[in-house]
Design a protein around this nucleic acid. Structure first.
Lengths: 204, 204
DNA sequence: GGTATTTGCAATCATTTAGTTCAAAACTCC
DNA sequence: GGAGTTTTGAACTAAATGATTGCAAATACC
């Protein structure tokens, strides 16, 4: 099994577990889930077939680990973009900007793993995970809006829940357009305008 | 070959070409593109393997035909929802409502073929098709906004192009949330609120 | 009724894919 | 250096898949 904590004896691994998962992320990201074969993962992760099965399990298990790691990393960066001390407007703009930038990064596939790729996987566990992640993202935004109320950036009757969901939907739209090849420049401009939209009557 | 136009002699087909394509749509819609096998299509379309190859071609060709037919049908219905004589607000609300309803229809898979499924297909022709469809949809909305200016529903300085793109992004977000299992009721409510958002300072 | 034409079913072939086995290699501890 | 332990690479098995072919059945035109 995975002798990660108490591995002392035996031949050491020639690969880094975290690094291999990141490489697997790129594989799924660019080829979807069904489109990926074990051979793709063997080639992309730089891990031999038997080691891959022993350490990670089958394709589904690998994808779930990839998804969790991706969500954790992405969530942390999104939270950082949102809660860096700055005006509410800059926070929302920064959140959308980060989404666009990570969805159009050079070297990796376009779009977002959780928005574009994972929803196509007809799997109950993946489904639940995505729903939780979605509501988690909306709650993060909602909290930021509430902080904005406390700071006096927006009035107390600002529809925090509604706007939070709308920002996530706009982010989803931007990610999907990134996937089909819309230029980063266009998307960054649209992200700015989306920020203006959700804060329209409140100039902050 | 396809003896559709000048077919007079010979055994008539036991299947309807259009109907078979609609059944194929459901197959791709629910299982993605890479996830479907020829056997899935044979079973789902009710067409024998040899006939399927003779009439439609291989999987890729079938998907492209499905995609075109779907886009045509969906585009026509979206245009109908948008340009039925009514207030601008009701038009936009109707457009979003139609998107949500078709993305949460019972009996078929959730989401939208063009928004959720096709973007995962790494194929140049599909990519181009989706970009054209996307800009076509935005242009449709833009025209409706301009009609709204002519009718006096919104002022002449209304940012038609920007709002048109924002509506498509919101629709994309709604479709993706439909895909991951968000209830129709929630999405319909959010569609209404999205309408209010894009027309916020303009009570029409 | 005869003929040409096309469908539909079954069987078939080659290729790809997932997953396993096994011996050799690499390392630690004694 | 040797015993014990773990990883690795290559070969292997079994199943799934894409695509083709033959042949009988069905039907329109003559």
């Amino acid at each position: 099994m995975i002798a990660n904590t108490a591995r002392l004896r035996g031949r050491p691994r020639s690969f880094d577990e975290t690094g291999a998962l990141e490489k697997a992320t790129q594989v799924f990201w660019s080829k979807g889930y069904d489109g990926v074969t074990i051979d793709d993962l063997v080639a992309g992760m730089g891990v031999g077939r038997p080691s891959l099965y022993a350490v990670f399990g089958d394709k589904r298990a690998i994808f779930l680990r990839v998804l969790r790691a991706y969500a954790e990393k992405k969530g942390a960066l999104a939270a950082k973009a949102l809660f860096t001390p700055q005006s509410l407007r800059d926070s929302i703009a920064g959140f959308l900007k980060y989404n666009v930038e990570s969805a159009t990064e050079k070297g990796s596939a376009r779009g977002c793993l959780m928005i574009c790729v994972a929803p196509l996987v007809n799997d109950a566990e993946v489904q639940r995970f995505l729903q939780n992640a979605a509501s988690g993202g909306a709650m993060l935004l909602e909290r930021r809006f509430r902080d904005g109320i406390s700071a006096g950036d927006i009035p107390p009757d600002f529809p925090v829940a509604v706007r939070a969901v709308q920002v996530t939907d706009l982010a989803r739209g931007l990610a999907m357009r990134a996937r089909i090849g819309t230029p980063r420049k266009t998307l960054l401009k649209d992200a700015e305008e989306a920020t203006d939209l959700v804060l329209l009557p409140w100039r902050v």
